[in-house]
Computed example of a mutant assay.
Amino acid sequence: MSDFCQIQDWELFSGSGRPYVIAGPCSVENRESLISEAFSLKKAGVRVLRGGLWKPRTHPGCFEGVGETGAQWLREAGAAADMHTATEVANARHVEIVLKNGIDAVWIGARTTGNPFLVQEIAEALRGTGIPVFVKNPLVPDPELWTGAIERFARCGLNCICAVHRGFHFYGESLYRNPPFWQIPVELRRRLPGLPLLCDPSHITGRRDLVEDIARQALILGFDGLMIEVHPDPDRALSDAAQQITPGDLAGMLGRLKIRKTSTQDAEAAAAIDDLRTDIDRIDAALIDLLAQRMDISASIGLIKERSGMTVLQADRWNNVLERARSMAKEKDLDEDFITEIFTTIHRASMERQLNRK
């Protein structure tokens, strides 16, 4: 899976550069407003117009898109503003309609990515078309599902494939609608280094006032571009009103965002980074040695517990260890939740060592 077409070579983005931007309304609502918005987006430098035709909602009875009628509107809007077009597909019938209407690219939504049956059906329907495919992450933070969906399209002969990070479902309180869990797209890029990667800050945030900050973070991390929901009058949008921004807001945001390179031609800066990374490598080696010592000690404690008839879990001791670690983290100006996560992982490994002692 190393033969992905590099995004700068896609005809879809001909004439543009990083960040590569796909923008448009969450849902296509009517022909006139879509054409007007296309011209506004083109003026902002956007080359690809997005618009949802079918909107899978959690509950029935909500606005679920204009369907096939909107495909013609999307094509007309793209042609009028000289833009490429993209829409979401969730089954083979959608693919048939998209191809019949000359839509230039498709994306796979989060709900669909998590269903291998539907992904395979769509991949087979697209076989031989060469159409660009944008694969959003599944709702659950599982890199295997995401990678598997991408593999299915690649095995059907499609090589213009791009991953889209749109955040993950989270049960509980969060600042974001779908927290980004950046480690998941980072892992995807580690596995598939040649795969283009966009960020969808609209779905991550669920709030238009946070879109720019997430877009900025994505570009700092090295994402290739953005997929953003834009509406001429967001508060009146028929779907996802709270997370859409205006074309003017998009233009201003794109003007403020800065692109970073993956390397530098500054020899002094490169040398300084190399020296500091050598220090990090030394510290990492010491951490591994210390963790190995800790696990050996934990195993010895487990043997004593077994001989003495003691339980592996000692809740009071664990609470003391965690409280002490958090206190030391605070003194060192380290994030307490970060340290809690690390020590929780260490504690879990220690218990497993004691439980599985041979």
Rank of each mutant, 00 (worst) to 15 (best):
P232N: 14
R75M: 08
M328K: 04
T340K: 13
Q183P: 04
Q8R: 11
W146L: 03
P179S: 05
F181R: 12
A125Y: 06
G255N: 07
A269L: 10
G102S: 05
S263N: 07
I259V: 09
R277I: 08
I97C: 03
G252R: 15
T205C: 14
Q8A: 01
T129M: 12
L158K: 04
L175E: 07
R177M: 12
C26G: 12
L257G: 04
H59K: 15
S327I: 00
I204M: 12
P25Q: 08
R357G: 12
T85R: 11
T69P: 02
M83N: 00
S202M: 11
L219Y: 04
L192E: 00
F63D: 05
R307A: 03
T340Y: 05
R294P: 05
G148D: 12
A241Q: 15
G302W: 12
Q8D: 10
I7V: 06
F4H: 14
P25T: 06
E64A: 06
I108Q: 08
E64I: 09
A80C: 11
N30A: 13
G67Y: 05
P141I: 04
G24T: 08
L118T: 01
G222N: 09
P196I: 00
Q314A: 03
L34V: 10
T58G: 06
E124F: 00
N91L: 02
E173L: 12
H84P: 01
A90W: 06
F338G: 01
E29K: 08
Q8N: 13
G128H: 00
K100M: 08
K358Y: 14
T69S: 08
T345G: 07
F153E: 01
R207W: 14
L198H: 01
I103L: 11
E32H: 14
R324L: 15
G102W: 00
L139T: 15
I220M: 15
G67F: 12
I103V: 10
T58I: 13
L53G: 06
L276M: 11
L355C: 14
A44M: 11
R50V: 02
D3A: 00
G109F: 03
N356V: 02
I342N: 07
I346Y: 13
H59V: 07
H84S: 15
N319D: 06
L221G: 01
P185M: 03
P180E: 06
G51K: 03
M1N: 10
D281N: 09
I7A: 07
L221H: 02
L74V: 03
A125G: 09
V46D: 02
A349W: 09
S2H: 08
I304H: 09
I220Q: 15
C5L: 09
R216I: 01
A299D: 07
R282Q: 04
P143Q: 00
R191K: 11
I35P: 00
S33K: 14
I214L: 13
E229F: 04
L195W: 04
